[in-house]
């Protein structure tokens, strides 16, 4: 990330957000006052143990959830005051999601899974182009059941980036994969960030993955415990765990 991105202001701006889940008489505090920014084109890793609030934070940034208190802005749009319809439009226009368990449609081929998004997006890529970007040009007509976990996750990434989102949010994208396959997936995410300039946030509890980020935001018990900048980003191919 360069200084001009910082000068241009944050893409996402979260201020003192909390999220409390109430289940009967029990209140679970998933976030306890998180303040953070995401800048255009940067690669951020949200690092923390299970239950630290990473996924809750990512869901709030992506417009899938709303904070109990605090404010979240995407550029000029206040996500905390947006209606469900506005949040749906925000997600459709600006956010690409990658989840741990792919969430592909089993009865559609890789190309059709990507087409599902490109058919309703403004200015999307061709599905074949998106699949080529993740190195799956030879598997466009294969069904999810005919592909490995790593390939399925790459299809999920192609589906997320095919609509040319401003932000790519990845929730434990390597969580269901072995190390070798996980690195292939991380290389694809790294390439998307570098070549398309998509602001990327990756959730992980794996500290090794944090080394490939511009910035690492560590969460602990619903709070930001540390924000650090990597002086040298390590390429995904050099990461081992």
């Amino acid at each position: 990330m360069n200084s001009s991105a910082i000068a241009a202001g944050p893409v996402f701006s979260a201020r003192d957000i909390t999220r409390v889940y109430r289940m009967g008489e029990v209140s679970v505090h998933a976030l306890r006052g998180v303040t953070m920014d995401l800048y255009r084109g940067e690669f951020v890793v949200l690092l923390g143990p299970s239950g630290s609030g990473k996924s809750t934070l990512l869901n709030i940034l992506g417009g899938l959830d709303v904070p109990t208190t605090g404010s979240v802005h995407f550029l000029d749009q206040n996500l905390t005051q947006s209606t469900d319809r506005e949040l749906t439009q925000f997600r459709r226009d600006h956010v690409g999601f990658v989840f741990q368990f792919y969430n592909l449609i089993p009865s559609l081929t890789a190309r059709e899974n990507v087409a599902l998004v490109t058919e309703i997006a403004n200015n999307p890529m061709d599905p074949a182009e998106a699949l080529a970007l993740v190195g799956l040009e030879a598997r466009v007509d294969h069904f999810p059941a005919q592909m490995s976990g790593g390939e399925q996750q790459r299809v999920a990434i192609a589906r997320a980036v095919a609509k040319r989102p401003d932000v790519l949010l990845c929730d434990e994208p390597t969580g269901a994969l072995d190390a070798k396959t996980g690195i292939v997936v991380l290389e694809v995410i790294e390439r998307i960030n570098r070549e398309l300039g998509t602001t990327t946030a990756v959730i992980t509890h794996n500290a090794m993955i944090a080394e490939m980020a511009d910035r690492v935001i560590s969460l602990s018990d619903g709070r930001v415990s540390e924000i650090r900048r990597n002086e040298r980003k390590r390429p995904a191919s050099e990461i081992v765990w």
Partner: peptide, 15 residues
Amino acid sequence: MRAIHRKLLRNLWVM
């Protein structure tokens, strides 16, 4: 044909 319609037809065929 849109992907969502293909999904519908394939799902109907499976069941």
